[in-house]
Amino acid sequence: MNIEYNYGFLDENTKRMLRRGLLKAVAIPGYQVPFGSREMPLPYGWGTGGIQVTASIIGSDDTLKVIDQGADDTTNAVNIRRFFGRVAEVATTEKTSEATVIQTRHRIPETALKSGQIMVFQVPEPEPLRTLEASEVETRQLHAHQEYGLMHVKLYEDIARYGHIATSYDYPVMVNGRYLTSPSPIPKFDNPKLHQSPALLLFGAGREKRLYAIPPYTDVESLAFDDHPFDVQTWDSHCALCGSTESYLDEIITDDAGSRMFVCSDTDYCATHQQEAKQ
């Protein structure tokens, strides 16, 4: 059976609707714009929000990279890349530096992003206040009046319980000094990359039907206390494969005896770094 899809899978009206939402999102950095999420050929939780954003902005001269937890070769990343290769006839790459659009779940690449690049983040829960305030009506009010004391209640509670701010991913940020925003479940290690990023950062939440954006060169501040300043994860060891001491490391178990090693979560960065080391 041969089913004909419109270019980019979504119909043109849906793409226009999404682009209008994205323009609004770019105009109001960090503000959550509602949109009419479409059924996608994937269950929620597999990045339907990110896929719709990518589908609405991608063109045939784009080069797409897709990562999941930093890796280009997971089933999810491979499937999304293959999907767009088919429905949008785009070139795909694993190289951060060659991509014009990078769709991601849970990481920002280690290789510094450039002006002109677009990152598309898959977002499960766009509302950073949701765990503390269940009512959507109320959270909208809190955003409207910039009442964000509640977010510090959560950080206070972290310190009271663990002695430090234990939130280590999806760490809340203030965008452009105005909107409290979820950076999506990236590790807080990646938060500093959001600040004054040369790339355009777009966020899509399919289930919650929200879009938001951090335009290039926008201030992004991670919340903290004066006496408990924001910090990022550090490791005692370096990457076992490429020797990097600067990248985000995953701990992996290498045999049945439970041997462990730390390796870069960003597979492209690690491979590039290994090549450079050989030369």
């Binding site: 964000y148 004391g149 209640v153 509670e157 009271a160 903290a224 206390f225 004066d226 006496d227």
Partner: peptide, 19 residues
């Protein structure tokens, strides 16, 4: 959330940031 967080919430809403 803890009693301490309950009492601190209004202070934090007014911008106090020293744990």
């Amino acid at each position: 959330v803890s009693a301490g967080a309950n009492v601190s919430e209004r202070l934090m809403a007014l911008g106090q940031r020293h744990y």
